[in-house]
């Protein structure tokens, strides 16, 4: 077992799950990411966590994004292996009118609160999440604050917000 580059990880995954369903992408700067369809996420994540070649035992971060131009929502997962010392980023994008992504709470417990936050902030619905409630804003809050078209409500429980 040794440290793998993102390219090697992507090739390995393509061999297992099919080359057309796993895609390695990269911007002009920064780190590459593996783009997946939402239904591919649980099997790929499980392989990444449990396969001796990968050993991604830590989910460092999970961020929800709103791609307003494409009318899509997305989630980025940053994985880390404390044993093999390599990292990889995964990305899943879903249409705005059907924002369902399988929850990874079963694999990494830390996903629980991160997913609740992504639900609260951009409105992604994580299927099979044990407790998908708002976390930062109050339960009776309106809208998802990090959507690009978010409009702040004028009053909250009779208190002016502006």
């Amino acid at each position: 077992m040794s440290k793998l580059t993102p390219e090697e990880i992507a090739r390995n995954l393509q061999d297992r799950f099919g080359a057309d369903r796993i895609e390695l992408m990269k911007g002009s700067v920064g780190q590459p990411w593996i783009q997946l369809a939402p239904e591919m996420l649980p099997p790929v994540a499980l392989a990444l966590r449990d396969d001796p070649a990968f050993q991604f035992d830590v989910l460092m971060c999970l961020s929800g994004l709103h791609y307003d131009k494409e009318n899509e929502l997305g989630v980025v997962y940053n994985l880390d292996s404390t044993t093999l010392r390599h990292t990889i980023n995964l990305k899943v994008r879903v249409p705005l009118d059907h924002p369902h992504i399988p929850s990874l709470e079963r694999l990494w417990k830390t996903a629980n609160w991160h997913e609740r936050e992504a639900f609260d902030m951009v409105g992604i619905i994580f299927d099979n999440h044990p407790d998908l409630r708002r976390i930062l804003t109050p339960d009776d809050w309106e809208g998802h604050a990090l959507r690009k078209d978010y409009v702040q409500q004028d009053f909250y429980q009779g208190i002016p917000t502006k």
Partner: peptide, 11 residues
């Protein structure tokens, strides 16, 4: 700050 009260003297 959509979630911040603009002055505690509102309350």
């Amino acid at each position: 700050g959509y979630h911040v009260l603009k002055g505690v003297d509102k309350v």
